[in-house]
Amino acid sequence: KTYTFRVRIVDEETGEEKEIEVTAKSEEEAKKAAEELKKKYPNLKVELE
């Protein structure tokens, strides 16, 4: 079973919002993916929905 999570990304500089879908095998995995995004884009606000 896989879970699909919507991750909302807000670029703090431009105020631009993007939504991406993360497919993960567990909620834990999705959280890790969101953390990776935060590391990659430090000025983005990442929200897991």
Rank of each mutant, 00 (worst) to 15 (best):
E49L: 14
G15T: 01
S26L: 01
E21T: 14
T23I: 13
N43Q: 07
I9Q: 00
E49K: 12
K38W: 07
Y3M: 08
E27F: 15
L44M: 13
R6T: 13
E12L: 13
E49F: 04
E35W: 08
V7F: 12
E13H: 10
V46C: 11
K40I: 11
L48M: 12
D11E: 02
Y41C: 04
L44S: 12
K40R: 10
E21N: 06
A30V: 06
V10E: 02
A33I: 15
G15I: 00
S26V: 01
V22Q: 00
K40W: 08
P42M: 04
A30H: 01
A34Q: 07
T23G: 03
Y3Q: 08
K18E: 08
N43H: 12
V10H: 06
R8Y: 11
R6H: 09
K40S: 06
T4G: 04
K18Q: 12
E36G: 06
V22T: 01
K32W: 12
E29L: 07
K18R: 14
K38S: 12
K40Q: 11
V46T: 03
A34L: 15
N43D: 06
T2Q: 11
E16V: 08
E35A: 09
E27I: 14
I20N: 00
A34D: 00
E17N: 05
V46N: 03
E19C: 15
V10Q: 05
E49R: 12
L48G: 05
E49P: 08
K39G: 06
K39Y: 06
K1W: 04
R8H: 06
K18I: 15
E29R: 02
L44C: 14
E29M: 05
T4N: 07
K39D: 06
T4L: 11
K25H: 14
T2W: 14
R8L: 08
P42D: 04
E12R: 09
T14N: 04
I9C: 08
I9A: 02
A34W: 15
R8G: 02
E12D: 09
I20G: 00
V46H: 04
E19F: 15
K18P: 00
P42G: 04
N43T: 09
K18G: 04
L44P: 02
P42W: 03
K32I: 10
L48W: 15
L37K: 01
E12W: 10
A34I: 15
E29F: 03
E35F: 09
R6K: 14
T4Y: 11
E17W: 15
R8A: 03
T14D: 01
A24L: 03
E36Y: 09
F5D: 01
P42T: 05
E36W: 10
K39E: 06
E17Y: 14
L44W: 13
E21V: 14
K18Y: 15
E49H: 13
K25W: 12
K1F: 07
K38G: 06
E29S: 04
T2D: 15
P42Y: 03
K39M: 09
E21I: 15
E16N: 05
T14F: 01
K38Q: 13
E21H: 09
E35T: 07
K1M: 09
P42K: 05
F5Y: 10
A24Q: 01
T2S: 10
E16F: 10
E49I: 15
K39H: 10
K25I: 11
I20D: 00
E36V: 09
E28N: 07
K31I: 13
E19T: 15
T2L: 14
E13Y: 07
E16G: 03
K40M: 14
V7Q: 00
L37T: 01
T4F: 09
K40T: 06
K31E: 07
R6Y: 12
I9H: 01
F5V: 13
F5M: 05
E28H: 09
T4W: 11
A24N: 02
K25L: 10
E16Q: 08
K40L: 12
E27M: 13
E36Q: 10
A34M: 15
E21M: 14
R6A: 04
E36L: 10
V10F: 13
E28V: 07
T23V: 12
T14W: 01
K40A: 08
I20M: 06
V7L: 10
Y3F: 10
T4S: 06
A33L: 15
E21Q: 11
L37M: 06
E47S: 12
K18T: 14
E21Y: 15
A33T: 08
K40N: 05
A34R: 05
K1R: 09
Y41V: 02
R6G: 02
E27T: 06
E19I: 15
T14E: 01
N43P: 03
A34N: 02
K1T: 08
A34Y: 15
T14P: 00
V10S: 05
K1Q: 08
E35G: 06
L48S: 05
V22A: 01
I20T: 02
P42S: 06
A24D: 01
A33E: 05
K25D: 12
I20E: 02
K40Y: 07
T14G: 02
S26N: 10
T2I: 11
R6W: 12
V7Y: 09
K25M: 12
E12Y: 09
D11L: 03
A33K: 14
A34G: 04
L37H: 02
K45F: 10
A24K: 02
E47F: 15
L44G: 04
I20A: 01
K38L: 11
